[in-house]
Design a protein around this nucleic acid. Sequence first.
DNA 1: CTATCATTCAAACGTTCGTTTGAAAGGATT
DNA 2: AATCCTTTCAAACGAACGTTTGAATGATAG
Lengths: 227, 227
Amino acid sequence: MNLRAIKPMNETQTRILDAAEEQFMQHGFEGASMRMLTAKAGVNLAAVNYHFGSKDALIEAVFRRRLDPMNVERIAELERREKEAEGRPLTADAIIRAFIGASLRMIEDTRGGGRTFTRLLGRAYTDPAKPIRQLIGQMYATAMERFKAAFVRALPELPKDELVWRMHFMFGTLAYTLAATDTVQLIAGAKPEDRYDARVLEDRLAAFMSAGLHAPLAGAIHVKKAA
Amino acid sequence: MNLRAIKPMNETQTRILDAAEEQFMQHGFEGASMRMLTAKAGVNLAAVNYHFGSKDALIEAVFRRRLDPMNVERIAELERREKEAEGRPLTADAIIRAFIGASLRMIEDTRGGGRTFTRLLGRAYTDPAKPIRQLIGQMYATAMERFKAAFVRALPELPKDELVWRMHFMFGTLAYTLAATDTVQLIAGAKPEDRYDARVLEDRLAAFMSAGLHAPLAGAIHVKKAA
DNA sequence: CTATCATTCAAACGTTCGTTTGAAAGGATT
DNA sequence: AATCCTTTCAAACGAACGTTTGAATGATAG
C-alpha cells in the first residue's frame, strides 16, 4: 500500500525535503547529516526515517519531486514547438531551448528553493556514488531519447555518433553552468549580478550550444590537415 | 622545516596518494574513509596523519601532485605555440588545444592513475565543500588569467564579458567530459571503446568549443528577432 | 657497540553517524 | 466516552569516523 508517492505531501515531509535540498547542496549527500537536516527543518530526528524510510530514500525523493515534473515540462515544450511547426523540422536552436528552458527558469525561483535544486542537480550528474548517478540516469532516460530523436530529425546529415558526443558536450555545458556557485569563479571578471537572469542566460547558452552542435566535423578537419 | 613539498616522496607517501586518488574518485572525499584508503594502500592507518598531517591535507596533496605540473604544462604549451607563431595572433582553436591537451593526454594514462585523476578532477570543480573549490580555484588562477589574455588577443572583437561566459561554458564542457564515467551514459548509443582516445577526443572537443566560442552574439540574435 | 633518528604499528580516544525503539500525543471514527 | 490509527518525541543502539598515543622497529651515524 505504498500510496505515499501519489497523495499530496503533508507539511512535515515538505519541510524535510526543503531542508534536505539545501543541506545536500551545501554539504553533499554524505556531508549533510540527518541531525543537521532535521534541525534545519524543525522536525524530530526520527521523522525522516518515518516518512521516507531511510536517508537514501530521502535523496531519491528530493530529486523526484522536482526532476520528474521538469522532464515532463521539457517534453511538453518540445511537442508544443513541433506542433507549432506543423510538420516542418525544428531548428536545433529550438530543440536546445526546449531542453534548457525548464532548468533555467528554475534558477530564478529563489524563494521556492528551485535555484538551490538546480545547483544540486548540476552536481549530481557526476556524483561519485553510483546509485545516485543511476537514479539521475533513469530519470532522464525517456526525455533523452525523445530529444535525441528530435536532433536527428533536425540534423539528418550529422553522423549519429557525432551527435551523441555533441549532446554529451551540451549536457556538460548545462550541468556545469547549473552547478556553478556565485562564490567561486574560476574565471575572474564574471559579473554575479546578471548570472542568473534566465532569459539572458538562455540566449547565451543556446548560442554557444547551437554553434557547437553545428561545428564542422572534426574528422573533416583532420582530412584537410592530412591532405 | 616543511621541506616535504620539495624533496621527492618515499614509497609510503606515493602508495597513499595512489590509493587516495582511487578511493576519492570512487566514493568522494567524505565517502572514502582513512581505513579503506590505508588498507588499499597497504600501509598503517596512522601513516596518513604521520606523513600528511590530516585527511584534508591529503586531499590537497592529491591535487597538487598532478594539477600543478598540469597547469605548468598548459602554459608552456601556450607559449610554445605563441613563439612558433612569431608575433601573429594565435587561432582560438590553437589556444583551446593548448588548454585541453594536457588533461586529455592524462586520460590515456591508465596505468599511472592519470585517468583516475582526471575523473576526480572533473568532479572537484563543483564539489560542495568550499575549501576544495577554493583549492582548485587558486591552483587554476594563474593559468586561467594567462589563457584569458590569450583569448582576448585572438578575438579582440568579442566583448570581454561574453568571452568570460564562453570560457565558462568551455570549462564546463571539459570538466563534464573528464568527470564522465564509462558506466553511466545519459545518452544511449555512446561507444565506450573510443571514448578515451585522446587524439580523437581532442579533435571533437576542440571543434565543439571553438564553434561555441565563435558563435554569433546572443544579443545580435535578439535584435534580429525584434527587428 | 651505542645513540639517534625517522618510521611503523596496534590500540584506544572521543565524536558523530544512520537507524531503531517504545512511549506519548493528537485526531478521527464508532 | 472509547477505540483505532497516524504522527511526534526523547533516548538509546551499534557501527564507523578522523585522530592521537606510546611502544616497537629499523636504519644511520658517532
